[in-house]
Design a protein around this nucleic acid. Sequence first.
DNA 1: GAATATACATACATTGATGCATGATTAAAC
DNA 2: GTTTAATCATGCATCAATGTATGTATATTC
Lengths: 204, 204
Amino acid sequence: MVRRTKEDAMETRAKLLDAAEALFSENGVTHTSMMQVAEKAGVTRGAIYHHFENKMDLIESLMGRVKLPIDEMREQIAEGSEFDPMVEIKGRSKEFISRVQDDPQVRSLASILLHKCEYIDEVNPIKLRHVSGRNECICDIEKLFESAIEKGDLATTVDARIAVIGLFSLVDGLIYNWLLAPDYFPLVEYGNKAIDSYINGLIR
Amino acid sequence: MVRRTKEDAMETRAKLLDAAEALFSENGVTHTSMMQVAEKAGVTRGAIYHHFENKMDLIESLMGRVKLPIDEMREQIAEGSEFDPMVEIKGRSKEFISRVQDDPQVRSLASILLHKCEYIDEVNPIKLRHVSGRNECICDIEKLFESAIEKGDLATTVDARIAVIGLFSLVDGLIYNWLLAPDYFPLVEYGNKAIDSYINGLIR
DNA sequence: GAATATACATACATTGATGCATGATTAAAC
DNA sequence: GTTTAATCATGCATCAATGTATGTATATTC
């Protein structure tokens, strides 16, 4: 059976991306062959090379397919009409780790980004997406911190940029360590309290 | 020239480990071949397979060679006669990130652990060392937090275990993000302040 | 100093993965 | 309905990396 309908083609493409996502997040990017991806998707390697140029192109498509929670956060902040910037910051951070814990696809992506790939050079699409997404998001939340400082909600010694980077590091570290051994601690419960502590340390 | 003296052999072994460490931390573990390691060390692959069984054995030796800062921290805590546990905790954390920034070998190892390898399965020696070292260290510092709580130095609502995991995540996250793009922020300066904020949030 | 073991170099055999070229079948375009 | 083009399968050529087997010269042992 070949030359299936255009919808079928899109479906196999999606299946390939699903298979790649699952295999990458489980066995690592370099330890997953095109053959394995094809088998898991129920096709042959020919199908892959029809839809994608090579492995890197496959990864790029994979990364571009889903909205990272970091991206959603940005959108919601853009359209957000919350009044209290600190409430906003705390809420977004907690929602972030909550998504990682509960949404399988987000968790897979996070696992790939944090544990299942090697950041070999600067042009690596995975690293590029990771870094650029991070930097943009940091800039956005930095503004929230600045308005919180203007409102006088934070201690006068607090620097917005340092505060953001600390918060991001805390959240990244929580997810990193949780994915390393999910049974070791409950992400959302412990993470929420750790975030509270950190934010609390910035106030007054 | 073959059958060199026993000291020479230890030297080539050390050179091989140095070469592997440099290449792994720069290009990633799986993207580095035995051939490249041998070339960088100035020998052939035969030398590698004489000293090590295979790549995984090479990695194990590499990881076992240096004392991770996390290990040193444990030793110093064991022999430490400090009085104030919170001062101890804060000092150790800051010394940790300071070592990562200033000691090239520690930085290389951290880079390999955080960015240049894939955690493919549970028996992976890199992951094993990372996780076991982390868990032991967490247990140690947890005790310090407990004694701080007993002394009444922390808010009564603080749970020692959650506090440790938060602190570890913060430190890991700082190092992770700094290694991702070292020019983006100064690790020690920002890291120290972020740690202060977090610890501050636990007090009172 | 003869025998043996060590420290590598060299060569080869094997494997797994990639990328491409080609083939087959049918949907889509006209 | 014919032509075209798309969707995938199949087969092949290539290559890089591994592991091992073997060779060689020298240190070490006795």
